[in-house]
């Protein structure tokens, strides 16, 4: 069974979501320019090009702020989980808005340079040793490069090809990108803005992001501290030979610890076929056998014997003070785990 890749997995909800998002960005830019135009006069040379540039720049900042709030909000309160939906499209559009801002900056400040615009941007300010007057363009460029990488690798293919841990590690770059954007604004526009409104909104938004992440981190830390990684299961002697003990890990997850002589292995209690209770079955011909339809798996790796290809998750175990403990974190289906060997008196 497989699902072929398509360019974009749109459905009616995603169309509506994307239309609303694009509409909101267009409205923001228009309103920003409309409200900003009266502020421009001969004494304050704030022309349309600058307003347009700032509209897209601030728009990208707000969008990135919202994106970074979604994760911790969903972790803090499950009612926010629905807003995780389609966050990928939100991210790609944010990159497009940030890119538009960068193009306007290049086109406005570096239009008449004899060098290439990019070269002029990279060389026009090299005051890296000072905070005030720091070349903020470089910070923005670095953030844009990160956003481009994240947007370019947002397709499902990349998740599958890179593997979830590598893909996730790559996409953790969103954190340094946001830090770069905050520095870009704080050392740039915040230094020249006369109207305190933007300073208040910008500072508030950035601190909300930091605060939400702090709250989510603190919550997860408390959960981690209260729930041990290893779950106390049973004594090896409690398990009948060729049978299993069923151990609940949570409301949804149960583990079956099978005993074959002096050898103990833990697998998921749910059969890959129809979720049958494997722990209620027994070991037949060296394989854990489901009591419902006879699907079989090797206890140490959760794989069906060839030519069958079904696999179930396995679990790491340890034996301490005569007691078996199960690692709460399941292994990927089919992962080989060395069985626990323990001499049992009734070796029947």
């Amino acid at each position: 069974m497989s699902v072929k890749y398509v360019p974009v997995q749109w459905n009616s909800n995603k169309w509506k979501y994307d239309a609303a998002l694009i509409g909101a960005v267009a409205a923001y830019v228009l309103i920003y320019i409309r409200l900003g135009t009266p502020a421009a006069d001969l004494a304050r040379p704030l022309d349309y090009a600058i307003l347009r540039m700032r509209a897209f720049g601030t728009g990208a900042f707000w969008m990135l702020t919202v994106i970074l709030c979604i994760g911790p909000l969903a972790r803090l309160d499950k009612r926010f989980l629905p807003i995780l939906y389609n966050r990928r499209h939100f991210g790609v559009l944010t990159t497009a808005v940030a890119f538009t801002h960068a193009m306007f900056v290049l086109g406005w400040y570096f239009s008449f340079t004899p060098q290439s615009q990019l070269q002029a941007l990279l060389t026009s300010n090299l005051s890296f040793s000072q905070v005030l007057g720091f070349p903020i363009e470089i910070l923005g460029l670095a953030a844009l490069l990160i956003l481009a990488i994240l947007a370019a690798t947002s397709h499902d293919f990349w998740l599958s090809f890179l593997s979830a841990p590598v893909w996730k590690s790559l996409h953790l770059l969103i954190y340094p990108a946001y830090i770069l954007v905050v520095a870009h604004v704080a050392l740039g526009y915040l230094q020249i803005a006369k109207d305190p409104t933007f300073a208040i909104l910008f500072t508030g938004a950035a601190l909300v992001v930091a605060g939400l992440h702090l709250a989510a981190w603190n919550k997860e830390r408390r959960v981690d501290a209260s729930s041990t990684l290893w779950v106390k299961a049973c004594r090896p002697e409690d398990i009948e030979n060729k049978r299993a003990a069923i151990v609940p890990l949570s409301k949804e997850e149960r583990v079956a610890i099978f005993r074959s002589g002096n050898s103990f292995s833990a697998v998921s209690n749910a059969c890959a076929h129809q979720g049958g209770p494997l722990g209620e079955g027994k070991i037949l011909y060296g394989c854990v056998t489901c009591p419902w339809h006879g699907f079989s798996y090797r206890a140490r790796n959760g794989r069906s014997p060839a030519p069958f290809t079904e696999m179930i998750p396995t679990y790491n175990m340890k034996l301490e003070d005569g007691m078996l403990f199960i690692d709460r974190q399941a292994n990927q289906p089919g992962t080989d785990v060395e069985p626990i060997i323990h001499e049992v008196a009734d070796n029947g």
Partner: peptide, 15 residues
């Protein structure tokens, strides 16, 4: 996450 939490206030306060 911890770097983000520390860096944001630090940058804003400095700026």
């Amino acid at each position: 996450t911890l770097v983000l939490i520390c860096a944001i206030p630090l940058i804003i306060v400095t700026a």
